[in-house]
Write a protein that binds this DNA or RNA. Structure first.
Lengths: 244, 244
DNA sequence: CGATATGTTGAAAAAAGTCAATGGCAGTGG
DNA sequence: CCACTGCCATTGACTTTTTTCAACATATCG
């Protein structure tokens, strides 16, 4: 898998006060006056699908808030294959390790057309010094990242359940929101990199779920699946017993 | 698997200034005067092997610094089996989510005789208000936790490599330090819960490595393996090619 | 309209799981 | 002190799941 398209489009400086994800994002607790000085330094970027936002190991000078779309965080295993360790959604922060002067720990690739805010580290550091309000939010972001990272191996990794159940869990996780029945439709290769299976296995598992009517591709855009949430939740438990 | 022994032994109030892991732990950057007020509230605890430090879901009012031994963090999969998501070593912090008034996200069980400091949340919050020095350390702890959590699925989970390679990686990770060739010896059930395999498979993989002379049980204590680090690092890469 | 990507399907091979039997060791109680 | 019991680890034979290899379909894009 190679991502050569790094095209991004500069959409202007960000206007935080009008931002749709602000309440769930990093700057939720800040006041207007804290933000007023920022418009110059925070950029609004749009990426198409499969664009590389940053590379693992590169020196990290910016962090990103996802405003729309989805971002996959990749890591390379010792034998060279890659694995997706998390998928970020609107409100999530990518590259938070920049705050520690560490190189990026993942390669970030968009999994859909995606809009982000690019925030230089110094901005966050500056705000952090001038107001303690950011502080709590930062810990919060660390926490949700960690929480996701922990859930991943226990729910999605092989060994915890047969492929069909893990596929169901993944689909449920990829929903646009907790109430929505629309889920992001990833490439088979990505699904394989999440669940630790080969594309063929992924294809077979999806076909089976499709045959059973638990997932329906949204046809106009092939960007989403419509899920039968209740049934998938049953599948996600593994062991579906017949009523007796 | 059931952990009924919750015996812990109170070893007195902690004396941070003389603590062996202080430079790697949470309070590294604090001054003597910051610490002087603490001795009353921070307790020194000793646990035997397989003692439960706290339970997933319980309300979190303390966090813990590991001083000696090892702690496994468990999570339950949707179908009830458990999975080890991380193993903490001296200098690591357990239950950091307490700072966010969240319930504990894991069940913490000692994987060896273990000594910890138990620190009430209010203490950390208090210090956090009075000095900004703790701040950076906290982010640091979040970061190492996240880093570990991310490494786990990409290196250890099934799908990334055959069992033998993953077993090698796990053994190398369980070394007492990066230079040591002694590694913590876990029960097969624990190994299974880390790698996502059954005890039988774990036993077979270990037997094979033992036959090849890559690991030797330390006999007096059955608490450690002595590793042939170089060979295991080769194994860890997977695909060992013959020189041609 | 081809050419390259990505997805699908089948059949055979390999890996891991399951089931079942056995061995070793520690702690218990006669 | 020794048999007994329970727990954990080991090993073998067999089953199931997943991978592998290969062929083919379908879509996408210039």
């Amino acid at each position: 898998m190679r991502y050569v398209k790094i095209k991004s489009q500069w959409q202007g400086h960000s206007d935080c006060s009008g931002c749709g994800v602000r309440q769930s994002a990093l700057f939720a607790d800040l006041r207007e006056e804290d933000l007023s000085s920022l418009h110059e330094t925070i950029d609004d970027l749009e990426f198409e699908r499969n664009a590389v936002m940053y590379h693992m190991g590169a020196s990290a000078d910016c962090l990103f808030t996802v405003r729309r779309g989805a971002v996959k965080l990749l890591r390379y295993t010792p034998d060279g294959t890659q694995r997706i360790v998390r998928v970020l959604r609107p409100g999530d922060v990518a590259g938070i390790e920049a705050l520690l002067q560490r190189p990026y720990q993942h390669t970030a690739v968009t999994a859909a057309p995606t809009a982000v805010c690019r925030i230089p580290v110094e901005v966050v550091e500056g705000l952090n010094r001038s107001t303690p309000r950011l502080h709590r939010r930062l810990m919060d972001k660390w926490h949700t990242a960690l929480s996701e990272a922990d859930a991943w191996p226990s729910e999605l990794a092989a060994g915890s359940a047969p492929v069909r159940a893990r596929m169901a869990r993944m689909l449920l996780r990829l929903r646009l929101s907790a109430e929505s029945d629309l889920a992001l439709r990833l490439a088979l290769e990505d699904i394989g990199a999440i669940l630790g299976i080969k594309v063929e296995t992924a294809s077979r598992a999806l076909s089976a779920l499709r045959r059973d009517g638990f997932i329906v591709p949204e046809d106009r855009e092939r960007q989403f699946y419509r899920l039968d949430v209740a049934s998938l939740e049953l599948e996600a438990m593994g062991e579906v017993r017949e009523a007796e």
